[in-house]
Each structure stands twice: as C-alpha cells, then as structure tokens.
Write a protein that binds this DNA or RNA. Structure first.
Length: 656
RNA sequence: GGUCCCAUCGUCCAACGGCUAGGACGCGACCCUUUCAAGGUCGAGAUGAGGGUUCGAUUCCCUCUGGGAUCACCA
C-alpha cells in the first residue's frame, strides 16, 4: 500500500526549457550512486506537489485507428501532465516498417484532436474543421510541433540516433550482434518447448558481459545479416510502479532480447528507452500489458549513458539515463470479457454473412463480392476466416447494412457519439474522482477541464475493466439531452454534413432557423446519438405526397370511434375521421403558427368535440406521419409549416 | 506450462480497520403523459473460499480458487 503512495517526482529533464518558467536549477544530475543491488527507484524529490517539468507521452504505433484503450492511455497521460502543469507529448512509434503507415498516424492524431486531447510536443497536425467534434470551428488550428526541440517525433526518422546508442552499447560489451537465422531460432524454441521447458535465448559462448566482441562487430559491419541483442544483467530488478507497487523480477528471468532488428530498425524496447530519456519524459503511464517489459527498459536505462552527440557512438559519454516514474494501468476488455480487438469487426461481419448465406441460397461469395465491390477471392478468404481485414468487413457491412461493433474512436465518432462523452466514460474505466455531488451521489459526469484539474495517479485502480457500450450510450443520450437547442443544431448538422450529407441538405437548406430550433426540441430528447437523431423526424424529410399511411393505424385511429374524454363516459359516436376534419379547421385558424399555440388548439378541439386528447392527436399524427408514433404534434406541425400540415391532412382525408 | 498482475452488486466505480457496504449503467414496479421517447419515485442486487492479526475487518497477512497479462527480428 505504501509503495504506491510514493509521490514520485523524477529529476528534471536535461533539456528543460519552456522558456517562460525560470530555468530549473541546474542541479548537476544527482550522481547516480552505484545502483543499489535490488531496489531501483526513480530519483524522487518528495513533497513536490506539482512539477512543471513533468513530461508524459502517448506513443502509438501507426498500424490502424486509435483504439479506445489507447485513447484512455492518452487521456490519462494528458490529464496528468495538465494537472502537474507540465507537458504532454505524442510520439509515433513507427519502427515496424511492414505495418506502419503515415495515413494511420494522421488518423490517430485526428482522433486525439477530436477527443480534445491536444499535445504540446509532437507531430504537426493541421486540424480540418470536420476533425473537431465539439461543434466549435477549428479550421486551420495547428496542433503539435516542438518548442523544446526534442523531435523528430516519428521514430523512423531517428534511426541514426538509435544506432549511435546501439553501437555504444556494443563497444561497452553490453550488446552484441547475433547471427542466428529465424529458422534456427524457431527450431531451438520448438525443441525446448517439446521438452516442456521454458524457452530462453542462450547467450553465445563467445560473449563476455562488459567485453567488446570485435569479431562479431566486424562481421556485422561487413554486411552480414544480424540482429543486435542486449546483454541482460543477472540481477533482480524491482520496478516501483505507482499503481501496482513494487514489482520484482528475479535475476535470470529475462534473456538477451533484441534491440535492433535485421532491417536496421530498433525494437520498441530500445527506441522507447532512448526517446524517453532524450525527450525528457518523467512519467510513463501505459497499459498493464507492458508491465512485463519494464525490467528490460530499466536494465537498458542502467546500461545507457547520454552521448554528447546523439549520432556518434564514440562521442564522450555524459550523464546516466534516468528511470521515469512508471504507472501501469488496467486493461480494457469487451463486455463479454474477451480482449478488445479489431478482429471483432471481422467476426461480426462473418457471422451475419454466414447466417445470410444459410437462409438465402442466392447469397454466394460471388454475389457478396459483387455487392460489396470486392473480389470473390477476398470474400471467400474472409468467410473462411483466413482474413480478418477491417476494410473487407467494413465493405461487406455497408453493402448489407450490418452494424459492426464500435471498437475504435473513429467508430464512435461515426456513430454519433460526443467526444466529451467518450472521454468522460473512458476516464471512469480504471479511475474515479472519488468526489461526491451535493446530493450525495458520486461525481461521474465531468469534462476535460475537470480531469485536468482533478486527475491523479493515486486514484487509478488495479482491476481490468469491461467496456460497457450500453452505459456509454446512456451517457451519450444524457449529454445530448443537456445540450442547448442551438448547440445541438450546430453539432448535429456538423455530424450530418460528413456522415449523412443527404439528410444534412434536406434540413439545412429548406428550413428556417426557427424551424431548426423546433426541430432540435423535437429530436433532442429522443436521440441517443447524433446518428439516430433523424429517425424520429424522418417523416419531415418526406415529400408531403410520399407519406405512407399505415393501414392498421388508419383502421384504429381514423375509421374507428374516437374515445370519450373519460373511459366511463358514453361513446362519442364520432369516428377519428370526423375529428380530423374538424381538426383541419382548427389548425387553419391557429393564429401564430408555433408549437404552444398548435398544441392548445389541438387540446381545445378535443375538448369541444368531447373526445380524448389522445384520440384527437392520433388522427392528426397519422395524417402527418402515416403512423401512430411521432414527437409532440405541436412541434411536428410547427416544423412542417401550416401549408404542408394542411396538405398532409387533406391528403389523408382523401385516402382514408 | 514459466513469470508477473488482479479479485466489492450482472457491469463500471465509492467505502484507503469502525454507523443498515454508497453511486452510476442495466433490470423490475409504480407515477406522469398526446403516441414514442424523456422525466420522477421506489425496489431487487456484491465484499470468491478458508485460515489468521485485531475490541472490530471489504480494508492488513497466508493458503486455495478464479480471472488476466506476457513469454517475437509487434509495439
């Protein structure tokens, strides 16, 4: 318990420097006393509540869209940096040549911007208006760059730096080139596993820790295909985690892991350690799946020393690398407890497809391929489960109107969730403010400003969480309901313009500002997302002569008798149709065409005719929408306008 | 399987040795109502098991059980 309460504040970064703060005292980096054998704590300055030198970072690998788990990591890092008055940085970890793409990096940055998570250091992103979800105009806003000159922020552009540190380690005898082929390694692993033993890479006999192996280095320099491995020290390593407490890894657990791949790119372990040091990262907050990697990183930090010249392995060595404060946060899973994965989309699409093909003989890979504009081979492979490509799943889903599960931030944006709701909900997964509202309930609705003020590592939980879409949806509905009418209109139209342009033009053009406000009042309380908002007013988008009257509704509401005001009263003897005829006149006579007046006209008419308000309303409702379901009639009529309202009533009377 | 992490209502979080274990989502009932929503009120619902420590354990310790992460030239 005590362990996690340590308010770790690491040594200030070497290249500090937001110029406005008085330069932090240049404490000659606390001489890292020869590391104590077992315990390794971050250099701490106890009692410092906030620290403008705090630097956190979110370091996604650009291999797809931003995952909700990643979004939460980014959110916590952002919030912590804000709380401390420090800096939040984004770094793109694109050292996997095969899987990384610039497009994906841009998408991730846009998703972050949409969520309102902005970075002080990182890639430059010019925000397009559509990228912002808060309804504010953000056209031309530029996020990112670096006032600290610690970039570039794409690791692929930093390879010479990693190479300098790698060579430095090799010359120190702390790393060495290894020449085994993949096949060779795989064969050894299989052999060991077959004996039910645990596989570990065996350090070659000619490697002596602390001794530069010149022969191997020369082979490598001569161009022989190789990787570089780190000489993992034997001692136990204790990671002082702010969430989990001390986590001890016994000596000899970790083997000589690869720090540079055969393609010349560093592995994650090396790159992350070098960059975090060079970029002054003080707090590493990431998902618990990385906990097990941390001893590797600590070992690397203890082996590395700053080079005067980052690109020259032979340059004089400077201060030792520092160990940042670590905080590993719990994982996020699906509601069923399974791991959240992009493959869920493929699974969902495949399932629907299989059901469809079982029911409908005309659905074959060929017809599916045609309809989804894919090749038959791709579709067959997809159905067979040989491919889980998101693109394939999406194409099939849109061709067959299949709802795919939302798992990436992008999906929630497209589904009409508000960014502040997503960040609110995400913050509650693994963290809580621990505050009470005046009425005694727990504080659970808050915005980014609140987070920036109240976030703390101490209140991060340890247990894995399940992502509950139903609760998120409820939060979204609440947030939409709370939006002001004008605010709702702005954001709704903004969403429609990118995701449902036809609906957008059907509303934004023809309707007046006043009508749009009425529309907001009609739609808002019925909308759980911006995407489903138009459902309740779909009838408005129809041409007046395109309203389809539901026969059973007509039977009940128009042909049948209108109910009396009180159930005990004698039958009225009037059909719904009779009432509607009178209703037409009442509507024609409404003085000012606005919801309240229309509603009261309807009520007066019902009273005058001695029929229940419900039955009087039903007739009109059928005339306007063809069905017995709609928002309040006052609003419906008001939005439609008197002329179109009467036209629909007339048409209904003529048909029913 | 090795190593590591975790354990409070169905789910997400509160309660950091001390009042009938609290809130949110979901669920049920009722109320309101111009249909559908929304809204309001009430309710059911949890400390995984067994041992300790203590005047007192959800809370501290141990064992078991259960869940998870990780064992790559991915991050």
């Amino acid at each position: 318990m005590l362990a996690r309460r340590r308010a770790g504040t690491p040594a200030p970064p070497k290249k500090p420097a937001p110029p406005k703060t008085p330069a932090p005292p240049k404490t000659p980096a606390p001489p890292k006393t020869p590391a104590p054998p077992l315990m390794l704590y971050p250099a701490a300055m106890p009692g410092t509540p906030t620290n403008a030198n705090t630097v956190t970072r979110f370091a996604p690998s650009p291999t797809g869209h931003l995952h909700v788990g990643g979004a939460r990591s980014a959110l916590f890092c952002w919030a912590f940096a804000r709380r401390e008055g420090g800096r939040f940085m984004v770094r793109i970890e694109d050292t996997d040549q095969a899987r990384s793409s610039e497009e994906s990096a841009r998408g991730i940055l846009e998703d972050l911007a949409w969520l309102g998570i902005t970075w002080d250091d990182g890639p430059v992103l010019e925000v397009r208006q559509s990228a912002m979800g808060n309804g504010q105009s953000a056209r031309g806003v530029v996020i990112g760059g670096s006032s600290r000159a610690v970039g570039p922020f794409f690791q692929a552009q930093r390879v010479p730096i990693y190479n300098a540190y790698i060579e430095h380690l090799v010359r120190l005898g702390r790393a060495y080139p290894a020449f085994e082929s993949n096949e060779e390694l795989e064969a050894r692993r299989k052999a060991v596993v077959a004996l039910k033993q645990n596989y570990k890479y065996q350090r070659p006999d000619d490697i002596t820790p602390g001794q530069f192996n010149k022969a191997r280095w020369e082979r490598a320099q001569a161009g022989e295909r190789h990787v570089v491995r780190f000489v993992m020290p034997e001692e136990a390593i204790v990671v002082a985690d702010e969430v989990l407490g001390d986590v001890r890894t016994a000596g000899g657990e970790v083997d000589d892991f690869v720090i540079r791949k055969a393609d010349g790119f560093p592995t994650y372990h090396l790159a992350v350690v070098v960059d975090d040091e060079l970029m002054g990262v003080t707090h590493v907050m990431r998902a618990q799946e990385h906990l097990i990697n941390t001893p590797k990183h600590v070992a690397l930090q203890r082996a590395l020393t700053r080079l005067r010249d980052d690109r020259d392995a032979l340059s004089p060595a400077g201060d030792a690398f520092r160990t940042p404060v670590y905080a590993h946060m719990p994982l996020i899973f699906n509601a069923d407890g399974s791991k959240m994965s992009k493959r869920d989309k493929a699974k969902a699409a495949r399932k629907h497809l299989k059901e469809l093909m079982a029911k409908d003989a005309s659905a074959t890979p060929a017809t599916v391929a045609q309809r989804a504009a894919l090749s038959e081979g791709v579709v067959s492979a997809f159905i067979a489960g040989e491919s889980d490509a998101v693109e394939t799943a999406s194409a099939i889903a849109s061709a067959y109107a299949i709802a795919l599960p939302e798992i990436e931030v992008w999906d929630y944006r497209a589904s009409g969730y508000l960014p502040e709701v997503l960040t609110n909900y995400l913050a509650l997964l693994g963290w809580s403010p621990g505050l009470k509202n005046p009425d005694g309930t727990d504080v659970d609705k808050f915005d980014l400003d609140f987070l920036a003020k109240h976030f703390s590592i101490e209140r991060i939980g340890k247990t894995n969480a399940r992502f509950d879409r139903v609760k998120l949806l409820a939060f979204n509905a609440d947030a939409i309901a709370k939006l002001g009418d004008q605010e709702f209109i702005t954001r709704w139209l903004g969403w429609l313009s990118t995701y449902a342009p036809q609906v957008h033009s059907g509303l934004a053009g023809p309707y007046s500002q006043q009508q749009l406000l009425w529309l907001a009042q009609a739609v808002k309380p019925r909308a759980k997302t911006l995407a489903d908002a138009h459902k309740s007013v779909a009838f408005i988008l129809l041409a007046d002569d395109a309203v389809v009257l539901d026969p059973s509704a007509v039977q009940r509401g128009l042909a049948g008798q209108a109910a009396p005001v009180n159930k005990q009263d004698p039958p009225t003897g009037l059909t719904g149709r009779h009432v509607l005829v009178a209703m037409r006149q009442a509507l024609a006579d409404v003085p000012d065409w606005e919801p309240a007046n229309i509603d009261s006209a309807i009520a007066s008419l019902a009273q005058a005719k001695g029929v229940s308000l419900g039955s009087a309303a039903t007739g009109l409702r059928i005339a306007l929408t063809g069905s017995t379901v709609s928002p309040g009639l006052g609003h419906c009529c008001a939005i439609l306008g008197r002329e179109r309202t009467l036209a629909r009533v007339d048409r209904c009377l003529a048909q029913a």
